[in-house]
């Protein structure tokens, strides 16, 4: 069984928001709403500052609280562990939105909970998600984290990396590559 994930090289990402625009175009995301976004984190004391630019989205967690708390089974794990929402089962109760520590979900104007799907319709055709396909710095890699020979597995193994809020216990599947290699 595959476990899809992303590795995003923060040393290459320039925060150009091409991924954001590509997602909106590919998935017809309604105006004023975003399935992915850019987060910039500046840390330290001047002049010793560090900056990390991250292209963020749903982490398609292995232990997804949104799936656990959904009262109708609308939020579910699809093939490859991709977390999706059955629109016809969703009541718009917003429990999944409250349960997500990443605030990755929102309510689509049609009434259902909406979020990143890893462009599952493209993945099924063997393509990369739209955000990855347009990235001008090639900072994003999509693939099967359970396949030790996949490019993403090799990157996660060889490069220093971190996930977002691992302390929340959700086992996120998006890895942010940072400077340096794993010893």
């Amino acid at each position: 069984m595959a476990r899809y994930g992303m590795a995003i090289d923060t040393t290459k990402c320039v925060g150009c928001m091409d991924c954001v625009v590509a997602c909106k175009t590919e998935n017809n995301v309604p105006e004023g709403l975003n399935r992915d976004w850019i987060q910039t984190i500046v840390n330290g004391e001047f002049p010793n500052l560090t900056m990390e630019i991250r292209s963020e989205r749903c982490n398609h967690c292995t232990n997804a609280p949104c799936v656990n708390c959904c009262p109708t089974g609308a939020s579910h794990y699809d093939g490859g562990g991709i977390v999706l929402v059955h629109h016809d089962l969703c009541t718009g109760c917003k429990a999944c939105i409250a349960s997500c520590p990443y605030d990755a979900r929102f309510i689509n104007p049609e009434g259902y909970a909406d979020k990143c799907t890893f462009c599952v319709h493209r993945v099924e055709e063997g393509k990369d998600p739209a955000c990855i396909s347009v990235c001008p710095t090639y900072c994003m890699t999509f693939g099967d984290l359970d396949d030790p020979n996949s490019e993403i597995s090799k990157l996660v193994k060889s490069r220093n990396n971190h996930t977002v809020l691992p302390e929340a216990g959700t086992s996120p599947n998006i890895y942010y590559l940072i400077g340096g290699n794993n010893a």
Partner: peptide, 9 residues
Amino acid sequence: MLEITNTRM
């Protein structure tokens, strides 16, 4: 200092 800027709204 920790400053987080987010483009999402």
